[in-house]
Computed example of a mutant assay.
Amino acid sequence: MTSSPTPLALATDQARTRLHELTVIDVRTPAEYASGHLPGALNVPLGRIRRALPEIRHAAGRGDVLVVCASGARSESACKLLAEQGVTTATLVGGTGAWAAEGHDLHTPAACDTRAGWSMERQVRFTAGSLVLLGLLLGLLVHPAFQLLTVGIAGGLVFSALTNTCGMAVVLGTLPHNRPRAADLDATLAALRNR
């Protein structure tokens, strides 16, 4: 990889052949990470990238860093953030979804090591659907103005699709079940320092 501030992208086959030499950082939530991740990937959720910056910079100084997420959108955001800080990284095109679709193995920790959870995409669908139903119900039973909640959610979904961002995912990512345990993040940061 070069020292270009523009995030680079690796296809799944390129990443697979270089996996042994890459430091892989998975920026999904701990629950998503536990549901299956690239072999050897370390979990630093997107919201914790700034805290992990010194360790990621250290790892990047010793070798190439690949950032992954479910689809590639969050990892691309992480790569841009890191590039602004002078850290060159690459993103996995299509994320773990593309990795699995190509037939590559995902590592799933032993059951005692994981927290059951839903993917962020599933959490967003559930929350958006619940809020739409709530807005419609309250609009019918309490006051029609509550239907504006439904309009707001619909507008947010359209904006999300047009910008390839998701404000609801950002908010959901801050909930306790989506944050890493302090000990887990500390262990990950120590592993990055030792790379």
Results as ranks from 00 to 15, higher is better:
Gln85Trp: 11
Ser119Cys: 00
Gly103Phe: 06
Leu133Trp: 12
Thr188Ile: 01
Ala73Ile: 10
Leu185Lys: 10
Asp113Trp: 12
Val158Gly: 09
Leu42Trp: 10
Arg28Glu: 00
Gly86Pro: 14
Ser3Trp: 03
Val87Gly: 15
Val132Ala: 08
Glu32Lys: 03
Ala83Lys: 00
Ala182Lys: 10
Arg181Trp: 08
Leu19Lys: 04
Ser130Phe: 12
Val68Lys: 03
Ala183Phe: 06
Gly173Cys: 07
Gly156Ile: 01
Gly173Phe: 02
Pro144Thr: 14
Pro30Lys: 00
Leu106Lys: 02
Thr29Tyr: 13
Asp26His: 04
Leu149Tyr: 13
Leu82Arg: 00
Leu157Tyr: 08
Leu66Ala: 08
Leu175Arg: 09
Arg18Cys: 09
Val132Phe: 05
Ala110His: 06
Ala59Ser: 02
Cys79Ala: 14
Ser71Ala: 05
Val93Cys: 06
Val151Glu: 04
Gly173Leu: 12
Asp186Thr: 01
Leu42Thr: 15
Gly40Glu: 15
Val44Thr: 13
Leu81Gly: 02
Cys79Met: 00
Pro109Gly: 06
Pro180Cys: 07
His20Met: 11
Val151Leu: 05
Cys79Trp: 08
Asn43Thr: 15
Glu76Asn: 03
Gln85Leu: 11
Thr29Cys: 12
Thr88Ala: 15
Met120Tyr: 15
Ser75Gln: 06
Leu192Val: 08
Ala98Trp: 09
Leu138Ile: 07
Leu157Gln: 04
Asp184Leu: 09
Val24Gly: 01
Ala90Tyr: 10
Trp99Arg: 00
Pro5Ser: 11
Ala52Ser: 13
Arg18Ser: 14
Glu21His: 14
Phe159His: 10
Ser75Arg: 00
Leu175Val: 07
Asn194Leu: 10
Gly139Leu: 09
Val65Ala: 03
Gly152Ile: 03
Gln14Ala: 13
Ile153Asp: 11
Thr108Leu: 08
Pro30Asn: 04
Gly103Lys: 06
Ser119Ile: 10
Ser119Asp: 02
Thr127Ala: 15
Thr188Arg: 02
Leu81Pro: 05
Ala169Pro: 07
Asp105Asn: 13
Arg122Val: 04
Gly40Asp: 11
Ala41Trp: 04
Pro109Asn: 10
Arg18Phe: 12
Glu55Asp: 15
Ala60Gln: 11
Glu55Arg: 12
Trp99Glu: 09
Ala128Glu: 08
Thr150Trp: 08
Ser160Asp: 15
Ala31Gln: 03
Leu19Asp: 14
Gly36Pro: 01
Val27Ala: 01
Trp118His: 13
Arg125Glu: 06
Ala52Met: 09
Ile153Val: 15
Pro144Asp: 05
Gln85Arg: 12
Arg48Asn: 08
Ile56Glu: 07
Asp113Ile: 05
Leu38Met: 06
Ala187Arg: 12
Asn178Gln: 02
Asn194Ser: 12
Leu92Lys: 02
Thr96Ala: 09
Pro176His: 05
Arg16Phe: 13
Arg48Phe: 11
Glu102Asn: 15
Gly155Gln: 13
Leu8Ile: 06
Ala90Met: 02
Leu140Gln: 08
Thr6Trp: 01
Ala101Tyr: 14
Asn164Ile: 02
Ile49Pro: 06
Glu76Tyr: 08
Pro176Asn: 04
Thr17Arg: 12
Gln85Pro: 01
